[in-house]
Computed example of a mutant assay.
Amino acid sequence: MSRIISGAAGGTPLVSVPGSLTRPTTDRVKEALFSRLEAFDVIAGARVLDLYAGSGSLGVESASRGASAVDLVEFDAKASEVCQRNADLVNTPARRKVVAVHRSKVESFLDRTADGVLWDLVFLDPPYPLDEPALGAVLAKLTPHLAAGAVVVVERSSRTPEPAWPEGMERFAEKKYGETRLWFAEPAPDEAPEAGLEDGE
Rank of each mutant, 00 (worst) to 15 (best):
I43R: 02
L89Y: 11
A67F: 01
E81M: 12
V82E: 10
E198W: 11
E167W: 05
S108V: 14
T12I: 15
E167F: 02
A67Y: 00
R65V: 03
A53S: 12
L135Y: 08
G200F: 11
E167A: 15
Q84V: 05
D88I: 12
G11Q: 08
F34C: 01
A94Q: 12
G66P: 04
V152Y: 01
T92N: 12
R96C: 11
C83P: 09
G59W: 00
S2Y: 11
K141Q: 03
L14Q: 10
D111H: 15
V101R: 03
N86A: 07
G7I: 04
F34H: 02
V29W: 02
A9V: 04
S20A: 15
A87T: 03
S80A: 15
P161A: 12
P133S: 07
F123K: 00
T22D: 09
E74I: 02
L197G: 07
L21W: 14
D76C: 09
L139K: 01
L197A: 10
D50L: 00
E179L: 07
S157A: 12
V138Y: 06
L49F: 00
D41N: 10
L142D: 04
D125S: 08
E194K: 12
G136E: 06
L121K: 03
A173E: 14
R23N: 10
R85C: 03
G19L: 13
N91G: 13
R85E: 12
F109W: 14
L135P: 08
E31I: 14
P166F: 05
S80T: 09
D50N: 14
W165E: 07
S80R: 10
A46C: 05
T26W: 10
L49R: 00
I4G: 08
P13R: 09
E170L: 11
E74P: 03
E198K: 12
D125C: 06
P18H: 14
S2V: 13
S6E: 14
V29Q: 08
T22Y: 10
V101P: 03
D27F: 08
N86M: 09
G7D: 08
A77D: 13
E74S: 01
R181Y: 13
T12P: 08
E61T: 02
S104Y: 10
G19R: 15
K176F: 10
L21C: 13
R112K: 13
L130S: 02
A8H: 08
P189W: 09
A185G: 13
F172L: 05
V99F: 06
S20M: 15
T92H: 10
I43P: 09
Q84G: 08
A87G: 11
V98Y: 08
A148C: 14
I4W: 07
I5Y: 12
G178Q: 14
R159S: 12
Y52P: 02
E155V: 05
D88T: 13
P161W: 08
V117G: 04
S157P: 09
S104R: 14
A164P: 03
S64G: 01
L72Q: 00
H145F: 01
V48P: 00
E38A: 05
E107Y: 06
D199S: 07
A150F: 10
R156V: 08
V15D: 15
S68K: 12
